[in-house]
Computed example of a mutant assay.
Amino acid sequence: MRLILLFIGCLLASHSWSGSAHIAVAANFKLTLELLQQRFQEVSEHQLIISGASTGVLFNQITHGAPYHVLLAADELHPHKLVQQGYGLAASRYTYALGQLVLASRSTALATADEHFIRQQLSQAQTIAIANPKIAPYGLAAQQSLSHLQLWQPLQGRLVRGNNISQAQQFLMTGNVDWAFIPLSPLLAEQGISYWPIPAHWYQAIRQQAILLQSGQNNSAALAFMAFLQSDDALAIIAQQGYRLPERP
């Protein structure tokens, strides 16, 4: 962490003017980023432009020339691939949040659920929403969780795949599905939805990583935001929105 801050500080030293930065953000973190944006713009002279989608879609957009300066991914794989392919700065990559997956429903019985109950309910469910595991890290976590329950294959015909986690949540909110595997964060502001935290050992840890893109290394707003993202102000907002924080060295 100190090395990352030193790296960003060195870049900032020669780019002190105000400006704007285009931030690509994983769909699950978009609402949190909007809160961070508000605070960042209060304490700096910079402005942020936000574009949200699944991490896989954002990755493809970046590699096809999308004008983003920073990526806030929902995993560590895609930022790593951006470094490998020359689109991201390795020294800037770090984990800014640890995601928590939940199973959500309008059923109040989730408050006292256990693994047996969850397996039974899902095996009888008509429709279950997940994000597309091929492009959305939370969708992959949902697949891994269903595999833990030995339900991934049996439920194939009843899974409704969203392009990103926001779409999977929308399927639940509109009553189009009975259950949804989604992040904890967006549910904190919802009424009438119950959720059950998926045990962490059911899925691979969701390490959400930030990376400064090559196009952002000379952008003063992008550099300032990357530094702000590691501030106490930013970390407090991230934690309040239902994310766990990585250990700080």
Rank of each mutant, 00 (worst) to 15 (best):
A189R: 09
A113W: 07
S54C: 12
Q169L: 15
Y96S: 01
G19T: 13
L48N: 08
L229D: 02
A205P: 14
G19E: 09
N218K: 15
P199G: 01
F225C: 02
L58R: 09
L172W: 10
L213R: 02
H64F: 09
V43C: 06
I62D: 05
L212P: 10
S166K: 08
P183M: 02
A26V: 09
V70F: 08
L31M: 06
G99I: 04
L98G: 01
L229E: 03
A200I: 09
E34Y: 05
Q124V: 01
A234M: 05
I182Y: 04
Y195L: 02
Y87F: 15
T108I: 10
R119E: 08
A26K: 01
A221I: 08
V160G: 00
S185T: 07
V25T: 12
Q156T: 14
A210K: 08
V160Q: 10
D75E: 14
Q143E: 10
F181G: 00
Q37I: 04
D178Y: 02
L172N: 04
H46C: 07
I165G: 00
D178R: 03
I198H: 00
A53W: 11
A205T: 15
A53S: 15
A125V: 14
P197H: 04
N164P: 07
L36G: 04
F228I: 01
Q85N: 11
R106T: 15
Y195D: 02
N163S: 12
G157D: 10
L72W: 13
E76A: 13
A91R: 14
L72E: 04
N163A: 12
Q41S: 14
G99M: 03
L155C: 04
P133C: 06
H64T: 15
E34L: 12
A239R: 12
Q124I: 02
F40M: 03
A189M: 05
L235N: 09
A180I: 12
L122M: 03
S51V: 13
L159T: 09
Q150V: 03
G52I: 00
L159V: 14
L5P: 00
S92M: 10
T95R: 05
V43G: 03
A113E: 01
L77Q: 12
A136W: 06
G99D: 06
S14V: 13
I237P: 04
A113V: 11
L140M: 11
L235V: 11
S18I: 13
L146K: 00
A24C: 06
A27T: 04
A113Y: 07
R207I: 10
A21E: 06
L6R: 07
V102I: 07
V83P: 01
H116L: 08
Q208H: 15
R161T: 15
L33I: 12
R39L: 13
T95D: 02
Q61D: 12
D233H: 09
L12P: 00
Q208S: 13
Q167M: 11
A27V: 07
N28S: 14
S16Q: 14
Q121S: 06
R93Y: 06
L213D: 10
H148W: 04
Q217F: 10
I193N: 01
G216T: 13
L5Y: 02
S220P: 10
R119Y: 05
L82H: 09
Q143Y: 07
L212H: 05
A129T: 08
Q121P: 03
Y96W: 15
I182H: 03
L6Q: 13
L229Q: 03
K81R: 13
Y195E: 03
S92Q: 02
V43E: 06
S166A: 06
R93Q: 14
